[in-house]
């Protein structure tokens, strides 16, 4: 079994399946075919600038895979799905990193950081991928998605960037709240921790009131449910509070 990080970007368009959903499908596909395990998918915000040809937002989707598959097998199956599911007008790219290999992790994280604040070229992405021995390929359109795909690997490696794709559904609704202990939340969701927005880590017997849409973030290399305190009661953080991630 080896450890991989896989990131895709720029596979969607208005009215088509989102990049996050495609990433999640690839994660399940690869895990199921190999008896391996795929992590949650994380969404990483990239720079929004007129010179970057994103449609409505600019984000990359990344997941970890623990699998006996080879790089060639992962690439073959992931690309087949990416190509089949990408929007016709999309510019998809995919990056695959062997996490156990020797590579310059600082350079990769620096690339991710830069992609949040400046315009980066495809040539720069390919040059770094070659230097770090990362498989980086494009699959249609302008292929601009390779920039975000490579940046997403670096941001995921940083350990405190991104929201977890999807919602956590434990029986709460918009108008029906549900109170659970931290231990129950962790057991039922597979998350690693429950933390306040100012980074206090809740202990297992503390209780949290969940209501509406509940989402997690990637923080301190863990999948974390963010909460805030309101009238001495811990509650799940809303979308506005999660925007910083």
């Amino acid at each position: 079994m080896k450890n991989w990080l896989i990131c895709i970007d720029d596979s969607d368009d208005i009215g088509t399946k989102g990049t996050g959903e495609i990433a999640e499908e690839i994660a399940h596909l690869l895990a199921n075919m190999s008896g391996g395990h795929a992590s949650f998918v994380t969404r990483h915000q990239l720079f929004v600038h007129p010179d970057i040809p994103y449609t409505s937002h600019n984000s990359a989707m990344c997941f970890a895979l623990h699998s006996p598959l080879t790089l060639a097998e992962i690439h073959q199956h992931a690309v087949a799905h990416l190509v089949a599911e990408s929007a016709p007008a999309a510019d998809p790219g995919i990056a695959i990193l062997d996490v156990d290999s020797h590579y310059d992790v600082a350079a990769l994280m620096d690339f991710g950081r830069r992609a949040k604040i400046e315009v980066i070229t495809k040539a720069a992405a390919y040059a770094l991928a070659e230097q770090l021995n990362i498989q980086l390929t494009e699959h249609g359109g302008t292929g601009q998605g390779v920039i975000g795909a490579l940046a997403g690997l670096g941001l995921r490696l940083m350990g405190s960037d991104g929201r977890v794709k999807g919602q956590i559904k434990l029986g709460q609704f918009e108008d029906v709240s549900l109170e659970l202990s931290v231990a129950d939340i962790l057991e039922q969701t597979g998350l690693d921790a429950v933390m306040s927005t100012d980074k206090y880590r809740l202990v297992l017997d503390e209780r949290v009131q969940l209501k509406g849409k509940v989402k997690a973030v990637y923080l301190d290399h863990q999948f974390v449910l963010l909460v805030h305190q309101e009238a001495e009661q811990w509650r799940n953080a809303g979308k506005q509070a999660l925007q910083a991630y």
Partner: peptide, 12 residues
């Protein structure tokens, strides 16, 4: 108005 992917939404 058409809602974006849930992951891209930022308003509660």
């Amino acid at each position: 108005f058409i809602p974006d992917d849930e992951d891209e939404q930022v308003d509660d």
